[in-house]
Design a protein around this nucleic acid. Structure first.
Lengths: 152, 152
DNA sequence: CCGAGTATCTCGCTGAGCGAGATAATACGG
DNA sequence: CCGTATTATCTCGCTCAGCGAGATACTCGG
């Protein structure tokens, strides 16, 4: 049986630290949401939309909803909210006219970059202080945790 | 001006990886919430309560609410829910009888350990594959990100 | 004691998200 | 082609988490 307890070794300290980082990043997103009259779900949606855009993929209403764990009714309400706020546009897909492609407005992208940019910049600055082997350790640890969390 | 763009350098890759980990950990908590008929806020509350217990501190209703960003009405409703589900007990503070100390039930602790234990164990196992310098790099990077996120 | 301050709770309300089902467009066997 | 199954989104009515306002209960300094 692996270590599951509230041990106090150096490994557990890092595990708690990682959890604390996750909580802190969540609170940071919540601040962004509050400042812009949005809800946590709306922020998660914008992030998913920007990720898709960066990967060059179209994001339909349905894919967005399932990425966030919403049903179709909730997804419609979410896209309504974001569209009313001017953060996204609904575009009927040309190929399949049942589908609604959700596009992020450039203004929303800039809003997000203005808010999250400094934090991302700090993280990049931090990383520039490590050598190859240290960077590889950080990367492989994060990769491993992501895989472990995705399985559960 | 620091790096804010959608750069593709090795640093940005790690930053996106960290964000992905945060998202994945959030989804993992959401699965725990669903499996036990709870809401995300309830899970966050249990985690805050267990953290306080581990630190040997009493958690009052008010402190719990402000840790989660709820007002007093929402906090009362939250503690009502958790108490109804048998996860916590309300105990009037002896010293100051206005205060309500919220205590986690042992059953809830075990429930949480059963669910999060494997993931924590995997992370600890992962960490045992690194040497001192690599562990120090992981720790200091996480510490730095936490501080940067807490400032914003 | 009395009034100010503090911790929690009650009440009424708003709105995010759900289940069920409607609507509209596509796929596909005959 | 036609009819039926399938898929994508939307509409409707509802539940319940969380909010604002204010009530209640306790503490403490003067």
């Amino acid at each position: 049986m692996r270590n599951q307890g509230a041990g106090t070794g150096p490994e557990m300290e890092i595990v708690h630290l990682l959890r604390a980082v996750a909580v802190e990043l969540g609170l940071h997103s919540a601040r962004f949401a509050n400042q812009n009259g949005m809800h946590p779900t709306d922020v998660r949606a914008l992030i998913a939309l920007m990720d898709a855009a960066r990967a060059g993929e179209e994001m339909t209403a349905g894919r967005l909803g399932s990425a966030l764990g919403l049903n179709s009714a909730g997804t419609t309400a979410l896209v309504d909210r974001l569209e009313r706020a001017g953060h996204v546009r609904r575009v009927r897909s040309e190929g399949d006219r049942r589908r609604v492609v959700v596009e992020v407005d450039q203004r929303a992208v800039e809003l997000g970059q203005a808010f999250f940019g400094p934090l991302i910049g700090s993280a990049v600055d931090l990383l520039q202080g490590y050598d190859e082997r240290e960077l590889a350790a950080i990367r492989s640890f994060l990769e491993g945790v992501r895989e472990a969390a995705a399985e559960g």
